[in-house]
């Protein structure tokens, strides 16, 4: 995957600027940078000069100089104090720009889970990638269904943790159409480094078309494929594998049409009805050896969607 499909420049230090706050952040970055370079060269330069100039030589002794000089101390405390005061103030001002979303921002819900993102669009459609129109303010409402994740798009200079049990907010306004990477920046386990999604910034007018197309996937895709999409975006994947390994819940592989032993000792054959029931009332018939922890999807999945998921499970031989 090309890192910066949209714009491959960027410079030695920073990735390309693709949001409205980027320029502001980068300006401050370079201000601190050049200030640091100045002080670093000053300190190390003086140090090197002293090492050379006052190196130990036969016949030369250390000269006696004053042991303290309050004026000097106050000077080299005061000047840095003023400088960092300015840095703090500018940084805080930009931070407020990055924090407070404009009133007209459209809202997208972001849910982090091990190890993928799902984005819920205003019309209720859920996708694993983030699609936004260019030059529009987007407010993100971030949460997590398991551990802490962190939503990070380097090109937008935006980062916010997705913390379970609450909603964190972030916003941005993309300025360049293209695709950008979304990283998870808070360590979250085995596949932390693979928890990468795309943010697609659509040119003017194309976003609406995409959303309509994508929301219509149930009717456009074959049911099993649509089921797979739901499986990844709606949180099934977190607990149910498709390769036979047991997670928090039983694997979907080869489960259809086979009998399973329930926690109460009875047996049930996995058919359409059992799957539907398990989605709507998950804790009624729990497979033996697993805990009754699955939340209900009643009201969260439409009937067609449940049907697609059943088709997908059927396809997993």
């Amino acid at each position: 995957m090309n890192y910066w499909l949209a714009q491959t420049q960027g410079d030695f230090w920073l990735p390309p600027q693709a949001s409205t706050v980027s320029a502001e952040v980068d300006w401050l970055f370079y201000f601190i940078y050049w200030l640091s370079v100045f002080f670093f060269v000053l300190i190390v330069g003086v140090m090197m000069y002293f090492i050379f100039r006052y190196r130990r030589q036969p016949g030369r002794r250390a000269e006696h100089t004053s042991h303290h000089n309050t004026l000097l101390e106050l000077t080299w405390s005061g000047i840095p104090l003023l400088l960092v005061g300015f840095i703090f103030y500018t940084g805080f001002k930009s931070f407020m720009h990055m924090t407070v979303a404009p009133a007209d921002a459209a809202e997208i819900k972001v849910e982090g889970q091990k190890w993928s993102w799902s984005f819920t669009y205003p019309n209720g459609y859920v996708d694993k990638d983030l699609h936004v129109p260019v030059d529009a303010s987007i407010r993100l409402l971030l949460s997590s269904s398991d551990v802490i994740h962190s939503f990070y798009v380097p090109a937008f200079r935006v980062k916010k943790d997705a913390v379970p049990g609450r909603y964190n907010k972030a916003w941005f306004r993309a300025t360049q159409p293209g695709e950008y990477l979304i990283f998870c920046a808070e360590y979250c386990g085995t596949q932390h480094s693979d928890m990468i999604s795309k943010c697609v910034v659509h040119p003017p007018g194309e976003y609406e078309k995409w959303l309509q197309d994508a929301s219509d996937f149930l009717s456009k895709m074959p049911p099993a494929e649509a089921g797979e999409k739901l499986y990844t975006t709606r949180g099934c994947r977190q607990c149910h594998s498709v390769d036979g390994t047991a997670g928090q819940g039983p694997s979907f592989k080869g489960i259809f049409d086979h009998p399973v032993a329930l926690a109460d000792g009875s047996q049930v054959v996995v058919d359409e009805n059992y799957i539907r029931e398990s989605i709507l009332e998950p804790n009624k018939k729990v497979v033996g050896g697993y805990q009754a922890i699955m939340p209900t999807y009643k009201g969260r999945l439409k009937d067609e969607e449940i049907g697609a998921i059943i088709e997908y499970i059927k396809s997993l031989k």
Partner: peptide, 9 residues
């Protein structure tokens, strides 16, 4: 890193 705006990135 102490500066808010740059630390976010």
């Amino acid at each position: 890193l102490g500066t808010l705006a740059t630390d976010i990135h």
